[in-house]
């Protein structure tokens, strides 16, 4: 058993876990931060993505103890951080994903939203190509990615104060706008 400190979502915590535990295992099963998901446990899917010092990493491949001294942000951290900055409700990325219908089963989405959050932190006006590149380590099995990309583009458009592009379906069968 190793005792070490983790800084998770701004909290400095003392953790005791065996050396062979991954960060994902410690987050989920020791700290109860079950928002980080596991889809493959070996680096192939991106569901376990968390931010480490602001960059997206795969917590299933990171030995937990080696995260000491770094700032970890999980999906649970976004709303409180948004509120602390004076925001209302969920983080704009989370809200946009919800508004765009991107949260189908939702299982890939904590990882996906953190990848998106990291992208927007670094590059508030990504092109569609840059969005695809930034999400290229996160598998989603439900959405066909369309509403995910729309959600990120919605964040970009709203931050820039421009009208987001409307999806094809929004003018329905009878040509009326919904």
């Amino acid at each position: 058993m190793r005792v070490f400190r983790l800084n998770v979502n701004g909290d400095d915590l003392e953790v005791a876990a065996p050396a062979h535990w991954t960060l994902l295992e410690v987050l989920r099963y020791e700290l109860g931060l079950i928002g980080s998901k596991q889809g493959c446990d070996k680096g192939d899917c991106g569901a376990c993505t968390v931010l480490l010092d602001g960059s997206p990493v795969l917590s299933c491949l990171r030995l937990a103890a080696t995260a000491e001294g770094h700032a970890v942000v999980t999906i649970e951290g976004l709303m409180p951080m948004h509120k602390a900055r004076g925001g209302d409700g969920a983080d704009v990325v989370q809200d946009a994903f919800d508004r765009c219908g991107a949260l189908q089963c939702g299982f890939c989405q904590p990882g996906m939203m953190l990848s998106a959050r990291a992208l927007l932190n670094e590059n508030p006006k990504p092109t569609r190509g840059e969005i695809h590149d930034a999400l290229a380590g996160n598998l989603c099995r439900c959405t066909g990615y369309t509403q995910i990309v729309q959600a990120v583009e919605l964040c970009v458009a709203e931050a820039a104060g421009v009208e987001p592009a409307q999806p094809a379906w929004s003018a329905d069968a009878n040509g009326k706008k919904v």
């Binding site: 680096g43 991106g46 480490l52 990493v57 795969l58 491949l61 990171r62 380590g137």
Partner: peptide, 9 residues
């Protein structure tokens, strides 16, 4: 190489 998270790590 790999994907963005893996290149970060």
């Amino acid at each position: 190489i790999a994907g963005p998270q893996l290149r970060t790590m």
